[in-house]
Design a protein around this nucleic acid. Structure first.
Length: 575
DNA sequence: GCCGTTTTCGGCCCGACTGTTTTCAGTCG
């Protein structure tokens, strides 16, 4: 069982947090954090890289010492240094860092002054009004801490895995299961198949010749932490990651209906069962029945056909109009990864990317892209060494030169320019007008009221060079709420100006949401699915964006970067 | 701990905001 990237990254992150609380050098802490980030976002499995003797110290943010630690994790599953650190710092203390306004210094202080060791201790101390007595804390801080620590404990959403993380766990499990000859067919159902942003548990269906042997094989999976139940038709395990996996053995004649049933969503299933009822049919996981006779169930197509529906892609099964669309033969022909011709947001060393422009462009070329936009940050984003007008000029020159040098791909001269608080853009129009693509994003002053935030973005859109609104809501899944903004109004104005929305494909963001993708499409707005790559491996994140786009009903036509450059160029013309 | 077209040592992302103070530390993006 190879160690997963996420596990390696978690150990490094954990160590960083521990060191941070202990008051270690902040740059050392940051080094561990950025190494974790690198590993987490790799598209290859770092264990395999180590096995194949690839030089991982060539990866960004990973030097010789970090490479050794990673090797240790890959080979032993853990890190001695972290074990030692855990003896010094209570484990529950690290969870306190998740509470906003609590950083390493305050956590350390809470531990020293009040002997707080975990969230429960923290909550109690806040309730008892002990925290306000500590120097540097006060009534307001204490109230905020209490509010958040209560929310923290009840926050079930945190237990769900992001789709990308679920995939990392799921693929080796699937490979393992497929090794058994007795298994004829295997599919993952549930929210994973629907490509939801986060996954609660995993439902796997199989057709097999020997269910006892299959179940035995399943519960013997190396990464199993706990066998919850084991039967002939259904078994349930918990993996070391905490993910619960159910395996169901299904008969051939019921496979399609079982797949429909366990793929869900619940709301979708309720609707189709009702339609069946109206036709005197009954749909369950075993088939479609007329009285006691099974009339369909072998394939999903068959099941839908019985109730006069066309096959509905799993990503659409959310009861958001897909059933009517199917009945009227009006389902979208969903965009696929193969339709993508380029990437419209990426960063280089000029700002906070990890590779040079040449390296990024060549990596994009290897993907077979026709075009690739380099969109480094503008000056306001100081933490990313954003570009001012002068450096932007140089960047443009470099893009032009590189365009002559590198054949087979077109570099789009571009920028990710900040939308400032007053709604102006962070670079002069003089320079923006030289660019092929201008992506505009909010990074600062995220906590404005909805009215002010909306006004800010609408004002920015008046700028005649504004092409694409980058990561429109700024949310980070399970971590940061979206900014408050009236999206309907923004879409309306975007439509008027011929401005497009980004669907940021980063698995942590997936911003726009599926819901807003659908609304955008209905408003007639095009979507750019962009990876926002900060390293070469991030270019592989496109699939997550495409998944989300499919959940948002997007067709090839709706997606800007499925179009040829000659078309795209016209589509970027402003009204 | 990482990194290097000035550096193998000495930098490293820096400014705004908040609540606590009464001049600033801690946190955040």
């Amino acid at each position: 069982m190879p160690v997963l990237n996420r596990q390696v990254a978690n150990i490094l992150d954990r160590l960083a947090d521990t060191l941070d609380i202990e008051g270690a050098n902040e740059f050392r802490v940051r080094a561990y954090k950025s190494a974790a980030q690198t590993i987490r976002s790799l598209s290859k499995n770092v264990s395999e890289m180590v096995e194949n003797n690839e030089d991982i110290s060539k990866l960004p943010n990973i030097g010789d010492s970090m490479a050794d630690k990673i090797k240790e994790i890959v080979e032993t599953g853990s890190l001695k240094q972290l074990k030692k650190a855990k003896k010094r710092i209570p484990e529950g203390l690290i969870d306190l860092l998740d509470i906003s306004n609590l950083g390493p210094k305050r956590v350390q202080k809470l531990n020293q002054e009040l002997d707080i060791k975990n969230i429960d201790d923290l909550k109690k101390a806040a309730k008892d009004e002990k925290i306000r007595e500590i120097e540097g804390f006060g009534k307001k801080t204490e109230e905020k801490i209490l509010e958040e620590s209560e929310k923290q404990i009840s926050d079930k959403e945190k237990d769900r895995l992001k789709w990308r993380d679920a995939r990392e766990i799921t693929e080796p499990l699937l490979d393992y299961l497929k090794k058994l000859d007795e298994i004829d067919q295997i599919d993952i159902a549930g929210s994973y198949r629907r490509c939801k942003e986060t996954i609660g548990d995993l439902d796997i269906l199989v057709i097999c010749e020997d269910s006892k042997k299959t179940m035995e094989h399943f519960v013997s999976y190396e990464d199993t932490d706990d066998v919850i139940s084991k039967g002939d038709t259904r078994s349930s395990i918990r993996l070391t990651s905490g993910l619960q996996v159910d395996l169901r053995v299904v008969s051939k004649k019921s496979y399609g209906s079982a797949l429909v049933y366990f793929t869900g969503s619940k709301a979708h299933n309720i609707k189709i069962r009702k339609i069946a009822g109206d036709k005197d049919l009954k749909i369950n996981e075993y088939g479609v029945f007329k009285g006691d006779d099974q009339v369909a169930g072998k394939t999903e197509e068959e099941v839908y056909e019985q109730i006069d529906l066309k096959y509905i892609e799993p990503e659409l099964r959310e009861d958001r109009g897909e059933i009517d669309a199917s009945r009227n033969d009006d389902l979208p022909k969903l965009v696929t990864l193969e339709d993508i011709r380029g990437d419209l947001q990426s960063h280089t060393k000029a700002s906070d990317g990890k590779y040079t422009m040449e390296e990024m462009v060549n990596a994009a070329k290897e993907k077979g892209y026709d075009y690739f936009a380099i969109t480094d940050h503008s000056q306001r984003v100081t933490m990313a060494r954003g570009l001012n007008e002068k450096r932007m000029e140089e960047q443009i020159k470099k893009m032009e030169e590189l365009n002559k040098e590198i054949k087979g791909i077109r570099i789009l001269k571009a920028v990710e320019v900040d939308i400032l608080e007053d709604g102006s853009l962070d670079l002069e129009d003089e320079i923006l007008k030289e660019l092929d693509v201008v992506v505009c994003s909010v990074h600062y002053n995220r906590n404005l009221s909805q009215k002010k935030q909306t006004k800010r973005i609408l004002k920015a859109m008046e700028n005649p060079y504004f092409n694409i609104l980058g990561h429109p809501t700024g949310r980070i899944i399970q971590k940061r709420d979206p900014i408050e903004v009236n999206m309907e109004e923004i879409f309306k104005t975007a439509k008027d100006y011929n401005i497009h929305m980004e669907l940021n494909a980063s698995p942590e963001r997936l911003d726009l949401s599926d819901f807003y993708c659908k609304t955008a499409r209905e408003t007639g707005i095009k979507i750019a699915i962009s990876t926002d790559a900060h390293m070469k491996s991030h270019l592989d994140n496109m699939i997550y964006g495409v998944n989300q786009a499919r959940r948002g009903w997007l067709e090839k036509e709706d997606v800007l970067n499925t179009h040829k450059w000659s078309n795209l160029k016209k589509m970027l013309k402003r009204n």
